[in-house]
């Protein structure tokens, strides 16, 4: 049975959402405050915090997850030290992955975070394999597989969901549908979206349940993913959960050769489609303040406590930035380590 969320648990969920938001705000600010410190490509999950936390709140010790290159939020909610995550994004020796992976390739296997793929859809079969391993181990483990709406047009999605259903693997496929593949809208590339149907419709092809949930509501996500987790744990096989979110930042920071200053442009709704109204409506529905308002209104959370959570998170992320800035870069020769295990 899915756990009942008491005030303490709800507060924990809100706290994780705030921590993820504040962490990523600092990632974004780093481009302005410390130009050149973050290289390459980063992708923010702002707008998806409720979905991430609601999903992760269903996990038990021993459960695992795999994700995409938009991956900062998961380890934060799982309890990975934010100093280590920020140091990784800053390319430091003491980063979570020693500066080898960067923003797109975080992993913390000790906490069940098996890793990510930088290539759209390619971690779906990997998570399915982890699900098979869990089935063999027979310890009741469940694997959460996170991916975006775009990935559902990868052949790997189709192949993986067919197999998971056939073998009744304990995997929950959580599609975070933010309605954009970089700057392409779903209805331009997906037959279901073009027909006005939810993307969870795709589950029909695999005889598995397909459900759609408001990804801006962490309690709803927790309930929906929780049912899927229970189903997986009891040996009844996988579920496709479509969690509808709105990405509040652009797909990623500017893509440019070294030497060109990087920053976050405006969201593609504005830059590609000139649709500022859509974006502003999404901002008004921002899940972090929305959840705070709800908890306060329900008397679950005292406004003073909520303010304190925010202050604590800001302090934590300030410390993470400071730690990461002060941390040493790796030795160049270390580039040749870890090629083989």
């Amino acid at each position: 049975m899915t756990e009942k969320l008491d005030a303490e648990r709800l507060t924990w969920m809100y706290t994780q959402m705030v921590r993820i938001r504040e962490f990523e705000e600092r990632v974004k600010r780093t481009f302005e405050e410390h130009p050149g410190v973050i290289r390459g490509h980063t992708h923010l999950a702002d707008g998806a915090e409720a979905s991430i936390v609601g999903s992760i709140a269903t996990m038990r010790p021993g459960d695992q997850l795999m994700a995409t290159y938009r991956c900062h939020g998961y380890p934060i909610a799982l309890g990975t030290d934010t100093k280590k995550i920020m140091a990784e994004i800053y390319g430091r020796k003491d980063g979570l992955c020693g500066g080898y992976g960067g923003s797109m390739h975080l992993a913390d296997p000790e906490r069940g975070f098996l890793g990510t793929s930088g290539i759209v859809g390619q971690s779906i079969p990997q998570a399915t394999g982890a699900g098979w391993a869990a089935q063999i181990r027979k310890e009741g483990q469940v694997v959460l597989c996170f991916f975006g709406d775009g990935a559902s047009k990868q052949g790997a999605f189709h192949e993986s969901l067919n197999l998971a259903s056939l073998w009744k693997l304990p995997v929950v496929y959580v599609m975070e549908n933010n309605n954009y593949n970089v700057s392409t809208r779903s209805d331009q590339e997906d037959a279901n979206a073009a027909a006005g149907e939810p993307l969870s419709t795709k589950a029909k092809a695999y005889s598995m349940p397909g459900v759609t949930v408001d990804g801006g509501d962490p309690v709803a996500v927790h309930e929906t993913v929780g049912e899927a987790v229970d189903r997986a744990r009891s040996g009844d096989g996988p579920t496709l959960v479509e969690s509808k979110v709105y990405r509040l930042s652009a797909h990623g920071n500017l893509i440019a050769p070294p030497g060109v200053p990087l920053h976050y442009p405006e969201h593609e709704a504005i830059t590609t489609f000139g649709n500022r109204e859509e974006y502003e409506a999404a901002l008004r529905g921002d899940p972090v303040p929305r959840f705070r308002m709800r908890l306060v209104e329900e008397d679950t959370l005292d406004p003073g406590r909520a303010d304190q959570i925010l202050r604590d998170a800001r302090e934590e992320m300030e410390a993470a930035v400071k730690y990461a800035l002060d941390a040493a870069l790796p030795e160049p020769e270390a580039a040749l380590n870890h090629v083989y295990a």
């Binding site: 990784e88 980063g95 870069l329 160049p332 090629v339």
Partner: peptide, 16 residues
């Protein structure tokens, strides 16, 4: 290039 997957961090990336 040296025989490794290109690492993220700049000193290692430049090295290979």
């Amino acid at each position: 290039a040296l025989d490794a997957t290109v690492a993220y961090s700049e000193p290692m990336e430049a090295y290979v």
